[in-house]
Nucleic acid binder design. Structure first.
Lengths: 199, 199
DNA sequence: GTCTATAATGGGATAGAC
DNA sequence: GTCTATCCCATTATAGAC
């Protein structure tokens, strides 16, 4: 076995844990399954992590970083507000369609964190960061499209984020592409009515 | 121990399971915890249910019935469309505020069902029924308020259901009443713009 | 530092007494 | 039908050899 720093080992185990969780669900990501996925002996686990909860903590933080690292709205010359909204929403929806299991994992982890005494705060911070990212995106769209939002941006960001969460959750369950698409279009239409010209 | 029919026993165990799941989460609802909650010996379990999964099946079906048994929109004389929308949305939101843990359980169960080979269909039917119930509610509001919806009702129902799901999930995590309220108001405003007078 | 062996616990399910 | 005792397996965690 190659000798590695404890930090490198931890990262390796966190990545393995994420793969197991995406494939089999959080409940089935036992220490054995994780070290098995990483191709390491079981003993490795407990001199990298004090406990399984510490691994989960690492997993949630890493998943958070990954979700936030999505491409920002690109400044296309001459794009109408409608084009930009379209790009903004489809960038999100394409990611969901591309990696449904990864998105399902984020919901599973949020539920898990709510039930685990030491982890509620992590879930809270996760949602806080999502909200901030949404605020940034909406402001970027407004800037690039030369409009402003007729609703306070934090309210609109939460409203939109909640809708997209629900849309995703629903689609993960019924996989009804047409219905999801129709709801997404309804949201896009609504957003365009909230975009007004700058003074 | 009082002698009871197997059906009565099953119901008793399902109710006990729901109490445990609301209190401690789905993952901690072991067969032992469930029979303990019901005040029954462990042996009871396996001549009421073939397996633990069969119990989960019963739990999901019962939770579904419970969620659907909410009061319909009441026909108040002389109510404006805005009043009716307000009543409709607050009826939902009050239920969430009143029993957050029960709502959290529905999301946990949906996730659980998605991961359990025999149960995906149950989750699908659950969401299908919610959607149908939302269609009914929206049509009732339109009838009572003397308006019609400028969007196809099934699309609007899914859109609204998705938003409310996301709103609930977000609030279960951060418990931010003010933010949830603001988002709910934004949705109410949006709905009223979609309500148009009948021809 | 690395890994094997094993402890300690808790899980679902069952056999068999009553 | 009812319940006790138990099986057998999987889990987290640790002790201690190398």
């Amino acid at each position: 076995m190659v000798r590695q720093s404890a930090d490198a080992r931890r990262e390796q185990l966190v990545e393995a844990a994420i793969r197991v969780m995406i494939r089999d669900g959080v409940a089935r990501a036992t220490t054995r399954a994780v070290v098995g996925e990483a191709g390491l002996p079981l003993g490795v686990f407990h001199y990298c992590f004090r406990s399984k909860q510490q691994l989960l903590h690492g997993v949630i933080e890493r998943i958070m970083l990954r979700s936030l690292a999505f491409p920002p709205v690109t400044p296309t010359a001459g794009a109408t507000p409608r084009d930009l909204l379209h790009a903004y929403l489809h960038a999100y929806w394409d990611r969901v369609r591309q990696s449904p299991d990864e998105h399902q994992l984020t919901y599973e982890l949020a539920q898990y964190a709510l039930r685990e005494p030491g982890l509620e705060d992590v879930a809270r911070r996760q949602y806080r960061q999502y909200l901030d990212a949404n605020v940034d995106q909406l402001e970027a769209v407004a800037r690039l499209a030369g409009i402003r939002w007729s609703l306070e941006v934090p309210v609109l960001a939460r409203y939109g984020m909640n809708f997209l969460d629900g849309l995703t959750l629903n689609w993960l369950i019924d996989r009804d592409d047409a219905a999801a698409r129709a709801a997404l279009d309804a949201y896009a239409d609504h957003l365009s009515t909230l975009a007004v010209g700058r003074d």
